[in-house]
Design a protein around this nucleic acid. Sequence first.
DNA 1: CTGAAAGCGCTTACAG
DNA 2: CTGAAAGCGCTTACAG
Lengths: 332, 332
Amino acid sequence: MSTIKDVAEKAGVSISTVSRTLTSSAPVMEETRQKVLEAVAELNYQPNTVARGLKVGRSKTLGLIIPNYQSLVFPDAIKGITDALDDFGYNLVLGDTYDNLEREEQLIEGLRMRMVDGLICSTATRTSTHLLQLKEEGFPVVLLLRHLNEDIDAVIADNYQGGFVGGNYLLNKGFTRIGFINGSLELDLYRQRYSGFQNALSAKGVEKDQRLMAHGHKGWQGGYYAMLKLLNQKPFPEAVFATSDPKAFGAIKAIHESGMQIPQDISVVGYDNLEFSQLINPPLTTIGQPFYDMGRMAAQKILELINRDNRKEAIVDKFPVELIERGSVREK
Amino acid sequence: MSTIKDVAEKAGVSISTVSRTLTSSAPVMEETRQKVLEAVAELNYQPNTVARGLKVGRSKTLGLIIPNYQSLVFPDAIKGITDALDDFGYNLVLGDTYDNLEREEQLIEGLRMRMVDGLICSTATRTSTHLLQLKEEGFPVVLLLRHLNEDIDAVIADNYQGGFVGGNYLLNKGFTRIGFINGSLELDLYRQRYSGFQNALSAKGVEKDQRLMAHGHKGWQGGYYAMLKLLNQKPFPEAVFATSDPKAFGAIKAIHESGMQIPQDISVVGYDNLEFSQLINPPLTTIGQPFYDMGRMAAQKILELINRDNRKEAIVDKFPVELIERGSVREK
DNA sequence: CTGAAAGCGCTTACAG
DNA sequence: CTGAAAGCGCTTACAG
């Protein structure tokens, strides 16, 4: 690959002049400009982003940290991020943490050694104090999907609303014995969904039954085992609200294996509107989140933080969610 | 963030000495070493990878190019790649092409400006001549999942075998009118699967019926519409082999919507063994590919290419596939 | 064993 | 408008 030096030689000018015509950071005589551009074209010269980054203190690279690549909520969000970044010449380097704090800290260190200009993190748990520290150092961070507190910029969905809407929907269909399969309470998003659901119940005067609350470990397996437990209750719940589509899929598997039909015997509502949720039989009624838009927004925010860091107060953007009615719930 | 200069000052040595103790590129007196290490610890110094990269011509960064983030075959492969890379301090920067050649070329240019040490590409189509050019320049490239020709290192699955095994399985179950829903013939992998399937048929003396061959466009929708066509045949096929799980999901949706049962009325075999395929009802019989292992292998190969570029002949690693029997095929 | 110097490929004051 | 010089944060011959 040719360097700025090669171009300067071929064009018969100094490297300063080459740099100036390429960055248009200072006026260059039209004739000189042309000579330089020709040389650039002939040599197929591409400026070295790394060298430039070292000089100007901007790498034009962002870090993205997610808990794991296998989770299906991220592809759309990543797409949103990269689409927003494309216009600005930014690249994304990524890492997954498996929700391991130590690993996450190492990852962030590695990213900073690489001079990333900012970080989009989709990993915040209650223990994520290191993120606060980054922010205090003035390092641009925005949280995506997972919320920590009001001190760090974040782009999240309205999880409380999602829990409420899902619960309310089932209530309106006439159900009162509703199973609730939740995820880890380490995550604010699950606490919010839970609280929204509870409030929907109390608003309708339905008493809370602790035995109908099940904790679903990660992935569809979590939903499967949680549902198995719920099925052991007598009488078992007439409807189930799972706080992620994979958990719903697992629950559905458990229900089918028990020889029951959805929605005839049990109704189920999921959460996420994964592409897959429309493909099962019956198609899953679920709470949809605008992952793509949230990704886009996160990218925009991080660029803002990078370009004018004067802002002090963090802003948390909360996107509305949407109930998507399909075939997994019946009228009671 | 502190620099090597800060460390040198604090330790009372030259920056050369700091560099040497940190890279252990030359002997340093134990006492000096300790002083340096202390200073490093106190300042929480992290060497700047970008600066180092510029000097030594290695960025410790790899590019990964895939057609799109939404495709579900990549998460496992990416996981394999990053797991293999972790031990070597390599990071991944990624891009998606939407199978757009121009965009891919731009992406690669951008990556090279960023001095990535090598590229893992999962995008090769028949038009990917630019990849050959990279390879000729001596730039490390390995193809993943998608094959181009024997001139570039690649890690792929045995797609011919997959087509053959799937076809043969259905034949052994007693079916002869088998629909085949394929993907784009721009991709070698689909040509291979098709050819494997055809050979399974001819080996059993089953005549090829062009009307049973359907082309499925991208995603589950492709499988859905292809199946709709197949369903219009009289008599319609008694079994269907879809060359991707999403296509199979779409086909299944179409079958269900026609009021038919799987496998009672039509048997179906998918391809990929996506996590999801075990969650539908009935669970999908499919051809499994070792995505994670292939990702790992691709990472290993690219590191090899980077570290000893003496090798001239390309090596194509072909991983075996596996038929995973579940509930979507009946005995005729 | 250690330091001063050169240099990776750029950008950007500083002179002219 | 243009060039020579300094410098981003490192590594690595070159001297000693």
